[in-house]
Design a binder for these strands. Structure first.
Lengths: 199, 199, 199, 199
DNA sequence: AATGAATGAGCCTTCATTCAT
DNA sequence: AATGAATGAAGGCTCATTCAT
């Protein structure tokens, strides 16, 4: 029964739960959700199969926890950038910061992101989390920009679109999929678009 | 064994193979790759389980065929638009056409796209196909634009980026995930970006 | 999905389904429901684990099928006895026939009966089947006795009670549990009670 | 290991052991032996999982203890009735007392009885206890009836049979399974049979 | 070419029991 | 004596793939 899931409060238990999440994170990243089995997760976490179900309701529950952590790890640094940007705001400089941070995040989480995102199609809860993340980012950034005195016309739409563009670009850069693309040149173009969007 | 795969040349066989691909296409769209089993595909295709392995090496092979068809269905209409655009070129008009066609394609193929895309992470061949598709679209469009006398500076990068932006926007619109977004307003912004990119 | 259960119509399939039921019957008899696993059933039936789920929805479904057969095998012979009793009715003779047949049935099915009966406590469907069996026997016998001109006062109650007594006795005899009991003498007593009940 | 089972002599320990037995009794009654797990027993008893194995060899051992208590609770009241019956003996009155007490016991213990009884099939020790209980009851009652001057011919058989009949009836009444049965009328019939058996 | 029954490895999950503290 | 986290074997069930016909 789901009610039997332990809520670990002791240090060692929390550590163990985190080890399982970490193992899940790694395996989901490496071979995807369906390529991972619970025995493997347990093994990599250095625990027994059984105890996994002491900390998580089922395999999907591990995924959900990995997702939550992923979302925190992505949201916080991005929110920080806008919040802590020095005034007066240099739009190009801010744009570059966001691009670079997004690339950094993508470098670190790209494979996991793909795995998680692919499950959004069939798992409503996962999907909802992703949408909520985008909502949060858009809201936070729009709010900050308004505070900084930017033009409020369609600010949400512009921010949202900007984030999408940056994400697209980061994805491309990180996977470096297309040999004919000059990613440095593209970065300039992206930057120009962002500056145009917010000036 | 893979060597026993029939290459159907008789009409009836080709029809049967296509029915299986169609069934796979539908089910992969509806419930994803891992939510579909071969028995179900055979059933929907109106054939026996066994014969599926007469036409395909394995379940993944069906996916690959579905992917090929998907790619054709996406590439051709987009290529057509630029190719058949009336001269002299009205950039805004062309941009709108591409946006609308991309939305139409997304509306039709979004779920399948997600399913296919999610497999790219763990399946190199699938990933390669997606990259190749983007290559083809970018090359074709860049080539056309050059013929039409557009500025060649970083044309590939600008085209590629433009396609990414349009895809992002189409995805958003189709799934209509964020209630606070005014998608019509966003469309104008996207359009303006494209016009700016190519004028 | 439950809808994928084959309804075997070919001889060989029916044979195979029966082999599984037979294996289930034997194992449930020998080591009980919880002492039996599906792999064991398959093994004894000479089939693979997987195919068991081609014929049955789950393990419990096998139990239900075994139960149905058990019920047929118990009901039919008992119903026959009263139906085919020669007229004019010799009550003592009829009573003896019923007792002997019940003993024979118990000898054959006692362990299975226990297994099945024990599941009635936790499985409503199983319970319902047992109650229905008793209903059927009681109704059929009461009806026959009325046709034969027996006193209708509380005939259902008397028949039902009579069956219970006979069953108790048969159970005792078959398991021969109590060394101090003279089962032949007890049989006479039971017989006398039945005669008294229906004269 | 079995040799490490504590034989609790301190008050608190005995209390704890009894709490576990009580929890086992409740759960075995409610959801059966196989529907109960040791963690649940411990939880309901308000003790840790581990300590259960300080007092009991294994899960089955708890069942055996529950069984012992059950047997005491069933035996004593029935033995009392015959022992304390006022003289001269009114057979009908005595019969009614036994019937009513058996019904009361069934009402209280029916579900537990079923659970325990169902295990007798696969567990020799449980089976032996049940047989021993019947032996005890039969012997005690036969002895008392002889003391009271009843006809000794086949007294054991008559007593045993009588108990079986009463139990059957009590079971029926308590579960009230058959809507067409007039249980009050049946009670009279049972009573008459008993009176006939012992007059 | 075609059928669909059959295979069996593999997966998620449970739970009686043990063990470090 | 006591805790409850941890173990790991075992079980029910699925499904990609094969095979007899």
């Amino acid at each position: 029964m789901a009610s039997n899931i332990r809520v670990p409060k002791q240090e060692r238990s929390i550590e163990k739960k985190n080890k399982i999440i970490q193992a899940g994170y790694e395996l989901f990243s490496e071979v995807g959700y369906y390529g991972t089995n619970t025995a493997e997760i347990a093994k990599r976490a250095g625990v027994s199969t059984g105890i996994v179900y002491g900390y998580f309701a089922d395999k999907r529950d591990i995924l959900i926890c990995v997702l939550e952590i992923y979302i925190d790890n992505v949201y916080t640094p991005l929110a920080d950038i806008v919040e802590k940007t020095p005034r007066p705001v240099d739009v190009r400089r801010l744009a570059l910061s966001v691009i670079d941070k997004t690339i950094a995040l993508h470098t670190r989480y790209a494979k996991l992101h793909n795995t998680l995102h692919s499950l959004a199609t069939t798992d409503e809860a996962v999907n909802a989390q992703f949408i909520a993340l985008e909502n949060k980012i858009t809201e936070q950034m729009s709010g900050q920009l308004l505070k900084l005195g930017f033009d409020p016309t369609n600010i949400t739409e512009r921010v949202h679109l900007a984030m999408n563009i940056v994400q697209s670009y980061a994805h491309e850069t990180v996977f470096d999929s297309h040999s004919y693309i000059d990613y440095a040149a593209m970065k300039d173009i992206v930057c120009n678009i962002l500056v145009a969007l917010f000036s």
